[in-house]
Design a protein around this nucleic acid. Structure first.
Length: 214
DNA sequence: GGAATGATGCAT
DNA sequence: TGCATCATTCCT
């Protein structure tokens, strides 16, 4: 892995540095805290770039009935067991795709689901993929919308987010208030407060409890 | 082989 | 609140 990303400096947001892998080699809720405020950089083959600040995440632990990894590694979720910093992308409801960051030690089935992000650069690129959206804040609101807006497909499953490439994670020194609450849409362990959002961020999705939750 | 189900989003 | 839509997983 290279030491620095090519997109090292931005006038408005200051110096960016690659996300440190050891900050993800921790318990999933702590990794989720670290990922809030980090910036996703999507690079397209034509050179276009989108930057988006993560404002909403959910933690999924090995000992967690709501986690895909709960029953051990399967072909779908094996990247959850990979090294921290690797993308876990899966298909949801046969329609959408969801982006996770594998966290914890290698061999441990933990991940952080990226649920929403605020576009910092490349709004037009995102809007091209979601033309019907009126409000800019809603462009990457919701896990399925985020992957659609950033054109994140299943081919990125297993991709290292901490190296230069089509999709990478960088840090820009964000510090702000965090709110916690129950995770969206899970029927198991529905009351664990493992959804973390940046307070007041306009791109945060609305909470909806699973109708199947006990 | 078959059936249940879901880390969703959008229209109603 | 209902439903589209299908891969994955588990059961028989």
């Amino acid at each position: 892995m290279r030491e620095h990303t090519e997109v090292a400096v931005d006038r408005e947001h200051g110096a960016l540095r690659p996300f440190p892998r050891d900050r993800l080699a921790v318990a999933p809720v702590r990794a989720a805290e670290a990922l809030l405020g980090a910036v996703l950089v999507r690079r397209f083959t034509d050179g276009a770039e989108v930057w988006a600040r993560i404002v909403e995440v959910e933690a999924y632990a090995p000992d967690d009935p709501a986690s895909h990894s709960y029953r051990g590694p399967t072909p779908r979720c094996q990247t959850m067991f990979g090294p921290p910093g690797v993308a876990y992308v899966y298909r949801s409801y046969g329609i959408h795709r969801c982006l996770n960051v594998s966290v914890g030690a290698e061999g441990e089935g933990a991940a952080v689901l990226v649920r929403a992000a605020a576009v910092l650069r490349g709004t037009a690129e995102v809007r091209r993929r979601r033309p019907h959206v009126r409000d800019d804040a809603a462009l990457l609101r919701g896990p399925g919308n985020l992957t659609e807006g950033l054109d994140i497909g299943l081919t990125l499953d297993g991709h290292d987010l901490l190296a230069d490439g089509a999709l990478s994670l960088v840090v820009d020194g964000f510090a702000g208030e965090v709110e916690r609450g129950p995770r969206v849409g899970v029927s198991q362990a529905a009351d664990r407060p493992w959804r973390l959002v940046v307070s007041g961020a306009a791109a945060v999705s609305r909470y909806r409890r699973s109708p199947r939750a006990s």
